[in-house]
Simulated assay, not measured.
Amino acid sequence: MLKTACTVSLKDYNIYNAELLKYEINDKILINTINQYSYCIAEKDAEFKKALQNSDILLPDGVGIVSAIKFLYNKNIKKIAGADIHHYLLQDLDKKKGKCFYLGSSETTLNKIAERISKEFPNIQVDFFSPPYKTEFSEIENNEMIEKVNAFMPDVLFVGMTAPKQEKWSYKHKNMLDAKIICSIGAVFDFYAGTIIRPNKFWVDLSLEWFIRLLKEPKRMWRRYLYFGPVFIKLILKEKFKN
Score class of each variant (00 low, 15 high):
residue 108 T to H: 07
residue 157 L to E: 06
residue 90 L to R: 03
residue 100 C to I: 10
residue 109 T to C: 13
residue 87 H to F: 08
residue 76 N to R: 14
residue 156 V to N: 10
residue 117 I to P: 07
residue 89 L to I: 11
residue 117 I to C: 09
residue 134 K to M: 02
residue 130 S to P: 07
residue 102 Y to M: 12
residue 135 T to F: 13
residue 78 K to L: 10
residue 131 P to E: 02
residue 156 V to W: 11
residue 147 E to H: 06
residue 110 L to W: 06
residue 119 K to E: 10
residue 132 P to H: 04
residue 80 I to Y: 05
residue 76 N to K: 15
residue 120 E to Q: 12
residue 88 Y to Q: 09
residue 81 A to D: 12
residue 100 C to Y: 06
residue 89 L to M: 13
residue 155 D to K: 10
residue 108 T to V: 11
residue 74 N to K: 15
residue 90 L to M: 15
residue 84 D to P: 07
residue 120 E to W: 00
residue 98 G to A: 04
residue 77 I to K: 11
residue 81 A to E: 13
residue 155 D to P: 09
residue 91 Q to L: 12
residue 91 Q to W: 01
residue 115 E to R: 08
residue 91 Q to A: 04
residue 136 E to T: 15
residue 84 D to T: 07
residue 109 T to M: 08
residue 150 N to C: 05
residue 82 G to C: 08
residue 101 F to E: 03
residue 133 Y to W: 15
residue 102 Y to G: 03
residue 105 S to G: 01
residue 147 E to I: 00
residue 98 G to R: 01
residue 113 I to R: 04
residue 106 S to D: 10
residue 143 N to G: 03
residue 149 V to T: 05
residue 83 A to K: 05
residue 115 E to S: 14
residue 117 I to Q: 08
residue 148 K to D: 02
residue 125 Q to C: 10
residue 129 F to P: 01
residue 103 L to Y: 11
residue 74 N to S: 15
residue 118 S to P: 01
residue 131 P to K: 03
residue 99 K to R: 13
residue 146 I to P: 12
residue 140 I to Q: 12
residue 115 E to Y: 03
residue 88 Y to D: 13
residue 86 H to N: 11
residue 129 F to K: 01
residue 98 G to W: 04
residue 148 K to G: 05
